[in-house]
Amino acid sequence: MLNQRSDVSSAFPVKLSLLSTSLFLGLFFFLPLILVFGVSLASRGMYGGITWIPTWENYQRVFDPLVGVIFFRSLLLAGLTTFICAVLGFPLAYCLARVSRPWQLILLTLVMIPFWTNFLVRTYAWVLILRADGILNSLLIGLGLLDEPLSLLFTDLSVLVGLVYGYLPFMVLPLVVAIERISPQLEDAAFDLYASMGGMFRHVLLPLSAPGFLAGGVLVFIPSLGAFITPYLLGGGQNMMLGTFIQHEFLVARDWPFGSALSFGLMGTVLLLWFLLGRASVEKDPS
């Protein structure tokens, strides 16, 4: 079996594409990321360029209180997003995992479609809903529940809603996989032993879904932490997150070394989380 497979992979075009892919990703993915680290240790030139004088200054500035607020807000919003996605995603994932075959495919497709659909446009839809003369305010005023429109847009709350909306499917899919692996007989066993619904949920479903929560949590947390479109469109200039701050440093303030230091901080967090998740899943599931 191994023998014939290696046959196919020894075909010349197969070898050539593996080589080209490695070169391409090395040149345009890994090298640029290394460059980010290099530039983060350089100094800013007089007119916004880079002077190659090594310094730690860019990293020291990360501890500036003004920058700290942005870091803290990003971590907090990403954490809250992950938590809310887990709470909202679990019931949906459970239904998807336990529904019969043809329905499962249809429902999974329905959950996936918004996720791969234009993120910019979907975030813009929330601008239409949340702005002062938007759908939500018009509806609430129309129903007589409000006299004055609420300022919902450009708040941390609107960013949170946008992030949950954007990344919820990332939580649902790993949870579906995890819940499918839990035999329904375990649930029956818990009930036979007089567990209540809540008890079964706490002692059987939740612990056994842990791998799903872990994978989903990382997959939601990472893009939320580095989000750009959501805080830009729904947060405005006041409620910056790391993503908007990095963009600001690169394209507006033209301070590339500091922007690189911020980017490397973000990248370090992401790589650490990804590494931990990789180790956890390799240990749990050696296949």
Partner: peptide, 22 residues
Amino acid sequence: NLILVLPLVIPEILLGVALLMV
């Protein structure tokens, strides 16, 4: 697997600024 999905999971903005600098 982990290395291959890295370009898919790192925040896009990192890819954007890194490529821009290169």
